[in-house]
Design a protein around this nucleic acid. Structure first.
Lengths: 195, 195
DNA sequence: ATATGTGAAAGTTTTCACAGCA
DNA sequence: TGCTGTGAAAACTTTCACATAT
């Protein structure tokens, strides 16, 4: 789904006005009926005999996905990965603002990373409740991921993306998504071993 | 699939010898027949009435996935994400060694990151052909991803993991995997918008 | 007694093929 | 004519349920 946005934004920057599902499918490397099904799902946006208007379609997809607004995020764990995310320009560009960064290491507290002051994790609830935080990013070592999740839940955060390679337990009204690089390397190793 | 390894290694470090599919399913947050199907797929490793021997199973899964050996990797693009990957201790721990780091920025060339000297991307082929490199990681800005992929193909690399948010084109004997954080944030935004 | 391995059933996703509209 | 939107078919995945092994 995110591919559509990627490719459509590309087309937009190339001043391409209209695209038929067949061409879009090619660029996204999926089947063209797949695209038509997906796009028809949230309203009839295509024009028969013509194709899809790039700008209108992008708008519609973004609205449908809920990314035609800003999302407030916080990050816990200012290690290598945490810093990479704090400095990543793509995220704010797409409407995901990391508002604050937390860590429990006294040596890191007070440090500034890409314009964010690093704050003690214990102050997460107090700080995060003030501004409405939507999404929490966990980039701690695995053994501290659960604690980070607990802090986030106490602050009323309902969406957690866990980059630490461990499962976390959350109450049923909280959505968790797992991101683990190693999995991509593992799956690549598998594919290369079974040609 | 990677979840199994995560959980089994956890069990191993807790000295747990045997585990039935039901318990394993709970920890992996999947259905227990799912697990039995998956595990039966590469040989009968369970013992009826008992369960699975953790160590043997781990061994078998790792062998099956092709991660009971070392994989030589290189990285192109020493930005924030590139640095995070170079410093990530989990990767070598799992058998993925990043052997060299490349960048085309003259200010970065010669710099050392986590024990890796940064080398000019033009010298990729020359350098990478010497040691057998299996996997290439692209962490460049999107506009330089295709060039990085071309260099990798010239060096005979057959597996590419692309962290840049753009599609790349490769010959049919090369496997590409895409990793894009934004997708996880987008999918979270979607789930939080449609409760 | 207990827990695997596996056919058969249910559910989901992907693709096909074409009617219907610009 | 050209391309969308969509039912129907095919392919794939997940779950159930139980015969089978220790």
């Amino acid at each position: 789904m995110g591919v559509y946005i990627q490719v459509l934004e590309d087309l937009q920057s190339q001043q391409q006005q209209v695209i038929p599902s067949e061409k879009l499918a090619e660029k996204c490397e999926v089947n063209s009926s797949q695209i038509r099904k997906d796009l028809a799902y949230f309203g009839e946006f295509g024009v028969r005999g013509v194709g899809y208007y790039v700008t209108d379609l992008l708008q519609a997809i973004k609205h449908f996905l809920g990314i035609d607004r800003n999302w407030n995020c916080i990050l816990v764990g200012v290690g290598n990965l945490g810093r990479a995310l704090l400095r990543h320009r793509q995220l704010p560009q797409k409407g995901f603002q990391i508002r604050m960064a937390f860590d429990c290491d006294p040596f890191k507290i007070g440090e500034h990373v890409a314009g964010h002051e690093v704050v003690c994790t214990r102050r997460l609830k107090e700080k995060a409740q003030l501004m409405q935080i939507d999404i929490g990013l966990i980039t701690t070592p695995p053994e501290r991921a659960q604690r980070a999740a607990n802090h986030m839940m106490q602050a009323g955060i309902k969406g957690i993306i866990n980059f630490a390679p461990t499962r976390i337990h959350v109450s049923s009204d909280v959505t968790v998504d797992y991101v683990d690089f190693s999995n991509h390397l593992i799956s690549m190793a598998f594919r290369l071993s079974h040609p």
